[in-house]
Every structure is written in C-alpha cells, then in structure tokens.
Amino acid sequence: MSKLNLVQAINQALRHEMEKNPDVVLMGEDIGPDGGVFRVTEGLIDTFGARRVVDTPLSESGIVGVAIGMAAYGLRPVVEIQFMGFLYAAMEQLISHAARLRTRTRGRYTCPLVVRTPYGGGIHAPEHHSESTEAFFVHTPGLKVVVPSTPAEAKGLLLSAIRDPDPVIFLEPSKIYRAIKEEVPEGEYLIPLGEARVVAEGKDVTLIAWGAMLHPTLKAADQMAEKGIEAEVIDLRTLSPLDSATILRSVEKTGRAVIIHEAPRTCGLGAEIAARLCEEALLSLEAPITRVTGFDTPIPLPKTEKYYLPDVDQIVEAAEQVVGF
C-alpha cells in the first residue's frame, strides 16, 4: 500500500484494469504522450501503446458516440472528457443512446461505457472549466453517476465502474485531485456502486455531501463537535442509483438533515433527497430539511467563485440552525 493522491489512484486503477482486461480501451483528447490535462493517464501509453490509449480528434460528441459503438461491439471503452463543461456537446449521445440502448433493444445490445470527467469549482480555472451539473445525468434514466471523494474511494469506485455492464458517468472532483494523499490498496480493490458511506457517526444531525464538498462538510462536523453537536456525515459516492436506505436510516436517527452541494440549488440533487425524506421520513423530522448549495447562477470566474461555493462556515451555520430549530 502506498500513499497516493486522487490523480495517482485513478491512474493506478486504470493501469490495473487494463492489465486485467485486454478489452479496456482509453480514449480522449491529449491522454496519450501528454498524459491528459490533469496527467491522470500519465505513462499509460508507454505500457499499453497507442492502440489502447487513443488520442482522438477534438470531438467530444464524436468520442462518446464512437465509444458507444465500441462498447456495443464488445469493448470496454473508458472515455476522458477534459472538463465537465465540454461534456455538454455529448449530451445527445449520452441521453438518447448510451442510456437507453439496453432497454430500447430489450437487452439485445448493451453499453458498458465509462465517461470520466473532472468537475466542480475552486481551482481558479477559466470559464466553462468548473461546472457541477451532475443532476442532468442523475435525471437521465439508464445512466449511473459516481463521484469519489478520496483517492482510495476513487480507485475502488472506478474499478467497479469499468466492470459495470451499463454506462457510468464518473465525475472526478478536480479541486481535490492533488489536495489529499492517503493509503490506497494495491491490486484488486472494489467499492460497489449504489452504496453510500457513513464517514462519521453522530446523533444530532445528518450532513449529506459528495465529491469535493465532503471535505468542508467534515471540517464543519469537527467544529460542531467542539460545541457538543454530534453530526453524522454521509458521503453518497454513487448519485445514481441513489442509496436512499442509508440516508433514511440516518435521518430517522438524527431527525435533521442538511444537504450540501456546489451545484446550483434549483433541481439539484439536494431537492430530490429532500423530497424523499419528506415522503418517507416525515414523522422522524424535527426540523426543516436544509440545503447548502451554489446559487442559481453559472459558477463565476475565479475572482468571485469563492462567494459561490459553499464553505465550512455556511455548513456549520445551516447545521446549527437545524439543530436549534
């Protein structure tokens, strides 16, 4: 076991799976000799060659469309799109084809495809490089959506995503690509999709987050602990299919929920989680369900993005209000 950051952990996962399965093919822009814009695929072309680490034309919709055909034929393509904001060009391919190929052919054709893309703000990137629109994909029947929050999580979830028989959108929080190092198990390490993780146990309030937002959420929980408030923190890990059972179990215990996401507020995944809690845990609720989210604006350019992104203070404030309700 060695201490790796998220970029290295994903690289290790890709290498592991490519060694194991000759049908795994990587495709994307600049993923070859350049190793990808975030260096996630660094060195893979040296080991596996240009046949399996394919630098493609600059063509996001084409890359995803071609990958659908490859997957249907029997390969396991893993696509890298440089930034989530550039994935929009491929929305039609994802929604109209990848997501429904299995069901529209009643199982005759399938689409075991992974689309990896960095997402989220806080890295002082140019316009269109800090999007957090995971709800588009969660809203699309037939897609799975996975967001790792630490290096080890990234490895375990990515291996499961590549082996999944259906299309998976794998969102990599770019803010924490190199911010955290932790022990990452070598070799086989699988985290099943569709299972959330209780990161910290507590009895007073449930804090629900994913991706980069897990980290300010954990800090907020620490600060609250100093004041005697015990927060339970859930890392969703898989946004679709959503692990409602873990969320419900926790909120039935705490009676209070705060959902934290950097995506815009309206129709963000927080809205869906709140609706489920209202439908299924109303009698356990001691306070209104609260959301700490980005605003309903495009994420601002770097000069003002910090005013947009939820921070530790906002999470503490929201949780304390809920606890004191």
């Binding site: 919709s61 084409g62 469309g65 055909g69 490859m70 034929y73 393509p77 109209s96 084809h97 052919t105």
Partner: peptide, 23 residues
C-alpha cells in the same frame, strides 16, 4: 436498431468499425 435522431448513429457505426479493427 434504427436511429430516430438524425445522424446520431453514425459515430456508433464508426465505433463498431473501430472495435472490429481492434479485435
């Protein structure tokens, strides 16, 4: 299966051709 959205299946065919060549 047939594709209703116009032209969107062309990349799928290209991907299958790619996979055939790969294998």
């Amino acid at each position: 299966p047939i594709a209703i959205p116009v032209g969107t299946h062309i990349p799928h065919a290209v991907g299958a051709a790619w996979a055939a060549q790969f294998k």
